[in-house]
Design a protein around this nucleic acid. Sequence first.
DNA 1: CTCCTGTCTGACGGGGTGTCAGAGGGGAAC
DNA 2: GTTCCCCTCTGACACCCCGTCAGACAGGAG
Lengths: 226, 226
Amino acid sequence: MPTPEDAPDVAEGDLTPASDGRIPGPRGLATRNRLIECTANIVAVTPYSDLRVTDVARAAGTSPATFYQYFVDIDAALLVLATQTTAIGAELAGYIKNRRWRGKAGYDSARELVDGFLDFWQAHLPVLRVVDLLTEEGDARFRQARVHMLNAITRALADAIATSKPDGTPQAIAPMATASALVSMLAHVAAHREGMEHWGIEVPQVTEAMTRLIYWGVNNPRVPSS
Amino acid sequence: MPTPEDAPDVAEGDLTPASDGRIPGPRGLATRNRLIECTANIVAVTPYSDLRVTDVARAAGTSPATFYQYFVDIDAALLVLATQTTAIGAELAGYIKNRRWRGKAGYDSARELVDGFLDFWQAHLPVLRVVDLLTEEGDARFRQARVHMLNAITRALADAIATSKPDGTPQAIAPMATASALVSMLAHVAAHREGMEHWGIEVPQVTEAMTRLIYWGVNNPRVPSS
DNA sequence: CTCCTGTCTGACGGGGTGTCAGAGGGGAAC
DNA sequence: GTTCCCCTCTGACACCCCGTCAGACAGGAG
């Protein structure tokens, strides 16, 4: 008896109902996509606070009322973009799984992770900026998208840490904790990359530094006994 | 010949002109402070996007027009709070200067830094959230305040790294780069502390992990030769 | 051709912003 | 105590964007 729906196989998995509850047909979906696309274009060149439903609608060649037919507010449109982007970001875990993490190979793995992470963030900068913004504003949906992305990476890294037990170290620590700290570092540097460059800090050097810290985090060198 | 001002020694160093260009007298300053205080109270319980000049004015028992007498917009009022807070934050560098950074003592220094940083951020959470927010929005004034704070800490840490040359390591790296990465880690974890707890990650463990990473960053253990 | 369903929009009430010109009040001078 | 003046405050307004109707429009089925 659950979901006795005839559940039509939707092409893009988008069976999102419009504001009046009905599911849009092909023409409606087209405008909806056009609105999303225009939102992406505008958010790329406009700070979030200056985003106007009016502008998005105008860019898409429709009226504001049409926008509200498909989204309750701009955030709803942005959430679509955010979900797409963070889904891609979650695949950054691929830089961690099934890699070698000890010695020279491990160091190389770490560098590829750092580069991959920074490149990804750079490529999706406008959307990720909005994600960070609304997460900080307390929007649960955006936080979930963000956590979904970062957690996939963190878990993978924690696995790598837990697996790569070197030197029979007895000083181990919760792998998720170290992984969280390292992913935090990556996320913050990626988000403030421009600011750092602007302030005279060379990103390649920070890349190198983060590579080392990750290597250390995974391989857990000796620390003073408490 | 510079500043031929009679430069009255203002109590709080606040010779901020009002919107009409005139410098407020005692009564005006009082309302101005009251407005700032009310802004702080409201921002503590309201997401930034819901901050209304109207509400602040009402809380201060004045009219919105009065608010605009002293600030061009809410951001201007928030900037005062932000500057105060980040000035305090810059003093976190005290957890770094004149400390020992090798061996057990170094490990303890690292932990104190982490604890101090997290405590500070927690204590000033609402304002720092706004600082992060507006920095991300591209507001140069807030970014400057933020950078001023974090950079003081980063510089101090870089000094510690440069000074504590262990084991005659030839693999050294730009100290500012490592310091930037570590401070980024601290800032991100501090800002997302609640989110992490909410997601089942234990902060004490992350504290431990960050302590280690800082210790490693400062003492620069061996990495594979490239 | 016609109808009907899905799609779009003009027009409007509501609320916050930012700006006047002018009202109000407190202290210095007498 | 009274007057006067300047600092301080505010009511009122125009503006803009939001979000929501009821109804106009289009294009495929019959």
